[in-house]
């Protein structure tokens, strides 16, 4: 479904990503982990075509990504922090309707596709928030709105960038459960990016370790060793390895 072939991003002579190759199959639940500044978000930006690789190719559903290929049709992207201002006069319905922009049928895209919006809100369990202002939502509710927005486009894959960061424990457990349900029930491919191992959902099957823009390891979850984590984070990996296997919802 997603093929990243030898992708490098070079900025001012420095490699942000260096020769990254990764293949993600339909229906997989992959976690990309690594310390801050490893290039995790940049990698997601490359997949969605937000950043053009300096070298290498990205292939989505057998189509090589170039300027004319629009990846959002198949891939949803939930960002770490989406709010640029504290008070924004948009409702949950407004924000979710953005996701289905391409599927709007009228000349004046005033409301988006109401059927898809309602279905997406229902899928994440926030139909009751439809007319609420997004400024008045909790952190967990905001993440759900973002996920609903991408689902409204009926995507095959979701890229989730640090979606559990800055949430309180109940919200973390809630969102974690939602993501796993989307994978289990809707069969959506999930690419879950985090720098904290104790956020890893139970259904993660494969873990990719990224450090200084390079893939350090790409292994099934049960093959991750303390030594790999030590190399990745530069601290005692044996203390971290318990998180790889023990996070439960």
């Amino acid at each position: 479904m997603i093929e990243i072939r030898n992708v490098s991003i070079i900025r001012e002579g420095i490699y942000i990503l260096k020769g990254v190759s990764l293949s993600i199959k339909k229906g997989e639940f992959v976690a990309i982990v690594g310390p801050n500044g490893a290039g995790k978000t940049t990698l997601l930006d490359v997949i969605t075509g937000f950043i053009k690789p300096t070298e290498g190719d990205v292939v989505i559903k057998n189509k090589r990504l170039d300027k004319k290929i629009y990846t959002g049709e198949n891939i949803g992207y939930v960002f770490q922090e989406e709010y640029s201002r504290s008070n924004i006069p948009l409702t949950v319905e407004d924000v979710v309707s953005i996701g289905g922009y391409k599927r709007g049928s009228s000349f004046f895209h005033l409301k988006g596709n109401p059927g898809l919006i309602d279905k997406a809100l229902e899928e994440v369990g926030i139909s009751n928030l439809k007319h609420r202002s997004v400024s008045n939502l909790s952190g967990g509710e905001r993440r759900k709105v973002s996920i609903a927005r991408e689902l409204s486009r009926q995507v095959d894959a979701l890229l989730l960038d640090e979606v559990l960061a800055n949430l309180d424990p109940p919200a973390q457990i809630d969102i974690n459960g939602l993501i796993q349900r989307l994978h289990e029930e809707l069969g959506i491919t999930i690419v879950f990016v985090t720098h904290l191992l104790h956020y890893l959902p139970e259904r993660v099957e494969r873990i990719v370790g990224l450090k200084n823009g390079e893939v350090l390891f790409d292994k099934p979850r049960n093959k991750i060793t303390g030594r790999m984590l030590t190399e990745l984070y530069g601290c005692d990996g044996n203390k971290l390895s318990k998180y790889v296997g023990t996070f439960r919802v």
Binding site: T48, F50, T71, G72, I75, G76, Y77, F79, E82, Y83, S84, I88, L90, D94, V95, I98, G99, G100, Y101, K102, S146, R149, E150, R153
Partner: peptide, 9 residues
């Protein structure tokens, strides 16, 4: 809302 979100949409 967010230029990046708009781009992905």
């Amino acid at each position: 809302y967010n230029k990046k979100v708009a781009h992905v949409a």
